[in-house]
Amino acid sequence: MRIAGAALVACLLAAWAPGPAAAAEGYDLLVCYPGGPVKDSQAEGAMGDMLRTIEALGGWPAGTFRHEFTTRLDVCRKKLAERPPHFTILSLGLFLEAREAHHLAPLVQPRIKGQTADVLRVLVRKGTFKKLADLQGKTLGGSMLEEREFLRRVAFEGALDPAVHFQLKPNKRALQSLRKLAKGELDAVLVNQIQYDGLPGLPFARDLEVIHSSAPMPLVGVAADEGRVPAAERKRMAEALAKMCAAGEGAKQCELFGVEAFLPAPADAYQKVQALWKTTR
């Protein structure tokens, strides 16, 4: 199961010996999961536990990290503006949006099923529509329709504005959207790579087909504000996360949660999507 990342972090290496002194004023971590099916209140306890383990993992004293979690885009933007975090776990859209203003440097990328990138696809019932243009004015469902500017600029590379081109029918639960598509209650559904990979397990999968695929887009993991987090601390965080899936209890948990590794984020990993974000106005 891919119940990964934070849970892994939370569970790992609590026994590691404390290391260097903590940042004097502590660090803020902001986690934004736009449109996700979790209530912010549900996140509180888990986030606290997660951070205590990150602290142990990196050798920071307990209480060094504070956290905030939200599934609302507007709340996330407000938090970014009002209290700029030291570290972030953001959607790709929010990451691109906030990267310059918050000097965000990606530290690690998760590798899931051998991939560190994702592809968005538009699915329809076989034989109903051939191309995106045919879907003008039609309904598009799915769980990833919250960040419309990101979809317009990056996923569709400026070719169309989803908010104008489609009647958007967002649903936190992708499976519901797909069932509606199969029953003819939706005209199309946007799915990501993991959802696409899960299609063969659905009884109506053979009735569906892809009519559009985005270019691969990099997964986002933990990023840090270069202006506020010293290089040594960024390195410390990246190295701690990078060791997680290598051996012992960490490897066991990585396996359970479906993350193969946390890899250092290549410097150029986000160049293409960043360029699309900037140039596609």
Partner: peptide, 29 residues
């Protein structure tokens, strides 16, 4: 994860876990 691996694998992964109403813990048995 289940909804947004493209957009926030860590956040999504955490969110998937949180759906259970859980705090992460290290007890396996």
């Amino acid at each position: 994860m289940e909804d947004h691996p493209l957009r926030a694998p860590l956040g999504a992964a955490l969110a998937g876990l949180l759906l259970l109403g859980l705090g992460p813990g290290c007890i396996w048995n």
